[in-house]
Design a protein around this nucleic acid. Sequence first.
DNA 1: GACTTGACTACACGATCGTGTAGTAGTTTG
DNA 2: CAAACTACTACACGATCGTGTAGTCAAGTC
Lengths: 200, 200
Amino acid sequence: MERSAEDLTARARIRDAAIRLFGEQGIEGASIRDIAAAAGVSSGLVRHHFGSKESLRAACDRYAKDRMLQIGAELTRDHDLTGLDPLALHPLAFPLQLYLVRSMMDGSETATALFLEGVDAVEDWTKSFGIDPKDRRGYAAALAAIKLSVFVFRDQVSKAIGEDITTLEGYNRIGQALMEVFTIPLLTQEQTDTMRNQEK
Amino acid sequence: MERSAEDLTARARIRDAAIRLFGEQGIEGASIRDIAAAAGVSSGLVRHHFGSKESLRAACDRYAKDRMLQIGAELTRDHDLTGLDPLALHPLAFPLQLYLVRSMMDGSETATALFLEGVDAVEDWTKSFGIDPKDRRGYAAALAAIKLSVFVFRDQVSKAIGEDITTLEGYNRIGQALMEVFTIPLLTQEQTDTMRNQEK
DNA sequence: GACTTGACTACACGATCGTGTAGTAGTTTG
DNA sequence: CAAACTACTACACGATCGTGTAGTCAAGTC
């Protein structure tokens, strides 16, 4: 994704185009022919390299997951932060995140597995940082979902703040805002307990 | 959605089926024939009542939006809470939320408008409750996106906590967890500032 | 009682989809 | 040099999609 398109093999160009189009338009919304055109090859070559649309999606799943873990490893190596990693907020990971979200919504097991690993990581992180919610697992799951929310609603969020969050500036801005959500307590413990009781 | 299917007019049954199938399978993923079959009518009748798939979607947009605002009004009347309303977490609103999220991702202006109204509401709420983030608009947009995130990843979240969040119990559980996210500060103000500087 | 109207169905249309088949050009291998 | 393999294209197939057309049937209207 970061290299120039001409230097890549046709197979890599197809895979990158698939990740982009699947992410932007959904799995069903992007056709083999669309992907082939975006990669500058014939639709037959897509089939030649990947066999079927489902196999192509599986290949995209594996690649996107590996790349995400790789990027995450590099980030935590470069500057170890709080654990609430900006992994999800890295420009290089943007198309990958977009794709993985779509793949999840389409029922992908690989993408869902990545989500579950993310929940595990958040759960471990809460332990090591002494955060002790009443429902640790549910808490971790909610946080994992939250980390992905800005990707799903990128168009709506961009429109709301009047700034494209796919650009570096907008990206940082919404990232900061997201951090503030985790910094400023919105409810007191008493309010949370009150609402718990109200819902019988 | 809450009345029994037999009592509804065919037009209402089609609309309800469309909202459900669009929400579950996406706009492109649900065909006119699927919707007609789910409503127990012929595909021609869908066209007769709504003209085209796009018009059907627009009708669903309007209905879902109106119902959501209506439900929200009833909730705030019954028991006025903190303003971080459990509107988004009401079982009755579940299929509507699911649909609206899909419609948003499909580029619906009506659904996007509802999102923007939600951001406005959150923004007003932060003011009246004395919450003063550095970027109020971005903060409100992030919160609005967060409120919808559990709907998008309902399957993944359900799998993560080992409990179906479409049931009332699972629903309340993830709702509680979400509330705790807003109750327990994860980061200190210094940490947030540190991360801001790191991203140059 | 003829006429209109609206709910509803059956069926056919062109377009697009994923997929299958056949074949070409260039490189590798024996 | 011939055989084999790989990357790649062109084209045709059945299925499904949204849509269009024609018609049935029952309830009202004059």
